[in-house]
Design a binder for these strands. Structure first.
Lengths: 101, 101
DNA sequence: CATAAACATGAAGACTTATTCATGTGATAG
DNA sequence: CTATCACATGAATAAGTCTTCATGTTTATG
């Protein structure tokens, strides 16, 4: 047996913490959940479901976009948001399936 | 088809965010990784592996304990830390297996 | 071109988190 | 009993996050 050590590389640890920090918010978890159901949604659509201020939602979305969790596509006046990678949803499923939460 | 809504209950969302916020830190992810390998570790043992200040490590551990991620057991002078629930490690595996991180 | 709809951005304040330093507590060894 | 090892705690500061309010940008519509 080798000596005990952290198996995740430093860079990966930091990246993971960075992304997880973004996931760790009720509104943002909700957004991920919605996008998992619907593929792509406009800000207005999400706003109706989440019932929060437009500006606040926009800040959250920009945050998630900066971290690469979602991406956008303009369609006329609207901007469609979608998950860049469905592996993120594993974490949500993990949360949802876990009765500790 | 029903109307779109957040599938995770509000309470669960908040609890999940609360716990995830705790996981979302390089040191704390490392601690979880170590405890997944070793079952139970003392503060001193972790300190040697992680190479951080005793006080800082202790703060992180108290934090994780408050959130129910780890629990403790005194054995003589030492305090053994262990994961309360291995479902937490799913998240670590998810991170480690996910090349987006 | 003026207006409105849809969304983004920036500043500001309240609040939370991270880290350090100093000190405190509990258990054992001598 | 006192010294020491192992760990916790508290205060303090710095840094980051959350939310609101006001304003800006882009695209369509009349």
């Amino acid at each position: 047996m080798g000596t005990l050590h952290v198996r995740v590389e430093q860079k990966k640890l930091e990246r993971a913490a960075y992304v997880l920090k973004c996931v760790a918010h009720p509104v943002r978890i909700s957004i991920i959940d919605l996008l998992e159901q619907q593929q792509r949604l406009t800000v207005t659509e999400m706003q109706h479901v989440l019932a929060i201020e437009q500006s606040l939602l926009s800040h959250h979305l920009t945050n998630m976009r900066d971290k690469g969790i979602v991406d956008t596509q303009r369609v006329g006046k609207n901007i469609h948001y979608y998950l860049t990678d469905t592996t993120i949803t594993n974490i949500i499923n993990c949360i949802n399936g876990c009765n500790r939460f």
